[in-house]
């Protein structure tokens, strides 16, 4: 069954954000997917205060039936005032008494997984920040009032659609391929960094494939290397395996110690079996509306 990345795009008052779930479906007919996705969008829109609405849904092909990466392809579905799904996107838009908290105020939906997910992922949790909460639902001290506006009941409707049996909704769990100790770290002439490990590299890791990884505890935790990076597996010779970073990372001083977790480039789909409403509001950074006409992209530091 193919798996899609379904991104719900929210807008209102010139601000916006997105919320993404994975959706595993038996169908590849987009028209058959519409009611399955549209129902969730409609239920999610019920949780929004004025002036926020679901601007549209971006559906991206993500994983093939065998769990490998699918060829990239996307499809947009915008809120349509006409047609079979009229009004699914702006349930509370302009509704009196349904004013929203500022967009950065969010509540948490805490997702749990279990069978039929693979055993190593059962019990994992996933946190989704739900923005655009009606003002009445959150007290000044951040407490969430599920009874206000029947928010808890509406949340259960939305969550129930996501975690009901065989709904197909879930998230992507990261697979740790290897967790290895680092023995040497050297700066290459092109600025990338190579490191070696005495760990035997499992057969699933192949050369010249990019893998996400996470360094930790290098130089007792004080190193530019610590954190996320993308690495290539180079080789295993005489019991020593070598990786090289894709990025240019400056390490002017000698680096010692540390560990590295290497993850699979594609996650494993795990279904929701339960989604609970967090009872304390959180602050979550929000950006521009997807409907906004964007200007020049902000400058970022490049390697």
């Amino acid at each position: 069954m193919p798996t899609y990345r379904v991104t719900f795009l929210f807008s209102g008052g010139g601000e916006g954000w997105s919320e993404t779930h994975l959706f595993n479906s038996t169908t590849t007919d987009f028209n058959a997917l519409r009611p399955l996705i549209g129902q969730v969008a409609q239920l999610r829109a019920q949780l929004l205060g004025d002036p926020f609405y679901v601007w549209g849904v971006r559906v991206a092909q993500y994983l093939k039936n065998d769990g490998t990466r699918a060829t990239r392809a996307v499809r947009l579905w915008k809120g349509d005032p006409a047609g079979a799904w009229a009004g699914w996107y702006n349930v509370n838009f302009g509704k009196a008494g349904w004013g929203s908290e500022p967009s950065e105020v969010a509540v948490q939906a805490i997702g749990f997984t279990g069978p039929p997910a693979p055993a190593q992922f059962q019990g994992n949790q996933n946190f989704t920040s739900l923005g655009g909460v009606p003002d009445d639902v959150i007290e000044d001290n951040g407490t969430v009032l599920p009874e206000a506006k029947n928010f808890g009941g509406l949340f259960d409707q939305w969550a129930g659609a996501l975690y009901k049996a065989n709904s197909g909704w879930g998230w992507g769990a990261a697979n740790v391929l290897v967790d290895c100790q680092i023995t040497t770290i050297i700066q290459n002439a092109n600025g990338t960094v190579s490191f070696t490990t005495p760990t035997v590299i499992p057969g699933g890791i192949t050369t010249n494939v990019k893998y996400p990884c996470r360094f930790r505890d290098i130089n007792n935790g004080r190193s530019a290397l610590n954190g996320e990076a993308i690495v290539y597996f180079v080789s295993t010779l005489a019991g020593v395996s070598t990786f090289t970073t894709r990025e240019v990372i400056g390490i002017p001083t000698s680096q010692t110690g540390g560990f590295c977790k290497v993850y699979s480039p594609v996650p494993t789909f795990v279904p929701y079996i339960e989604i609970d409403l967090g009872l304390i509001a959180i602050k979550h950074k929000r950006g521009k509306s997807p409907a906004a006409r964007r200007g020049r992209a902000p400058r970022r530091i490049r390697g």
Binding site: F30, R69, T71, R72, A73, V74, R75, W77, K210, P265
Partner: peptide, 26 residues
């Protein structure tokens, strides 16, 4: 109006694995 078809040409900004996965198209 939207292009109501699958498109392989996408804005990679939205793709979480743009650093890891490069398609033949796009």
């Amino acid at each position: 109006p939207l292009l109501d078809e699958w498109s392989a040409v996408v804005d990679l900004y939205w793709e979480n694995d743009k650093e890891l996965y490069q398609d033949d198209l796009g």
